[in-house]
């Protein structure tokens, strides 16, 4: 029998959303041919959490789900003590989700020093510097199952992944959520009269969509294999980014009519020039309803 990669899935301050998103991976049977969980929050495993805590179980990859705090207790021990022990045993660590990577929503809870493993928002935490080299970050609230599973396969195959400055695989995080959105034309030609509940329109101009400034493959690989939030008509909330969650998520903050946050790599001058040009034209097709005559 071929040797399976052994994974410890450790849930700390989490809603378990990544656990459930992972279960949406369409080829799980294949996955289980190649990987086994020594512990998982809901899938049966060879060891119990009590075993994991009381013994040193052989393991290849540590997955951390949820934010990390100095005083967060799991099954009577400090969560960070479990991390400390298994980070020495494994060859790779993957932070699963935005909480484990940047602190996410629960960085605002009342625990002590809540953060992701290496970052609190976009600041390095330094505390686990010695683990930096063996860590890969998969951000997202929740993670897209493919980003996690393919990264685990890359680890299994020993591939060298190109990572961004937050340790996220560029294969998934070099794109912006804007790439592949079905509402792209309304963005490009600055048709800014979006109304909720319609197939048409771009949410960037008024409704807080962070798609052009958020790194992720949502519109490239799609969710649940069929759709994405922005395609459905929901603004991107920037859930893969260190700043998640920002405030006033359903409205676009503007200064003198210009969005405060511009698309990745686009400066204000470029934006204003392009906006000026596109505004000069009226494209009838994009003013009409898509399915009308």
């Amino acid at each position: 029998m071929k040797k399976k990669v052994r994974i410890l899935w450790l849930g700390l301050m989490t809603c378990n959303g990544n656990t459930h998103s992972f279960l949406n991976y369409p080829h799980l049977e294949q996955f289980f041919n190649d990987f086994e969980f020594i512990y998982h929050p809901i899938i049966d495993s060879e060891y119990s959490l009590e075993d994991i805590i009381s013994q040193d179980i052989a393991c290849d990859v540590l997955l951390i789900e949820g934010a990390i705090a100095d005083d967060f207790i799991k099954a009577d021990v400090l969560g960070i003590d479990i991390i400390k022990k298994y980070s020495k045993i494994v060859s790779k660590i993957v932070t699963v989700g935005t909480c484990a990577t940047f602190g996410g929503i629960f960085k605002e809870s009342h625990y002590k020093n809540v953060s992701g493993l290496h970052f609190r928002e976009d600041k390095r935490t330094e505390k686990y510097n010695h683990l930096f080299e063996k860590t890969i970050s998969i951000s997202g609230c929740p993670i897209h199952p493919e980003t996690l599973v393919s990264t685990l396969y890359a680890i299994k195959k020993g591939l060298s992944l190109k990572l961004d400055s937050y340790l996220r695989p560029k294969d998934y995080f070099a794109y912006t959520v804007h790439n592949g959105c079905t509402r792209n034309e309304y963005f490009e030609y600055k048709v800014d009269n979006h109304h909720f509940g319609e197939l048409e329109g771009c949410m960037f101009y008024d409704h807080g969509c962070q798609g052009p400034l958020t790194h992720g493959s949502c519109n490239k690989i799609l969710w649940n294999e069929i759709n994405s939030k922005t395609r459905a008509g929901l603004p991107c909330m920037g859930c893969t980014e260190p700043s998640f969650p920002k405030q006033n998520l359903f409205s676009t903050k503007k200064n003198m009519g210009i969005p405060e946050f511009l698309p990745v790599g686009v400066n204000k001058r470029v934006y204003l020039t392009l906006a000026g040009i596109t505004k000069a034209f009226k494209i009838d097709r994009l003013q009409k309803k898509l399915l009308d005559d």
Partner: peptide, 10 residues
């Protein structure tokens, strides 16, 4: 996801 764009967390 057909309605909400994704599941979980739409």
């Amino acid at each position: 996801a057909l309605f909400g764009g994704q599941y979980p967390h739409t």
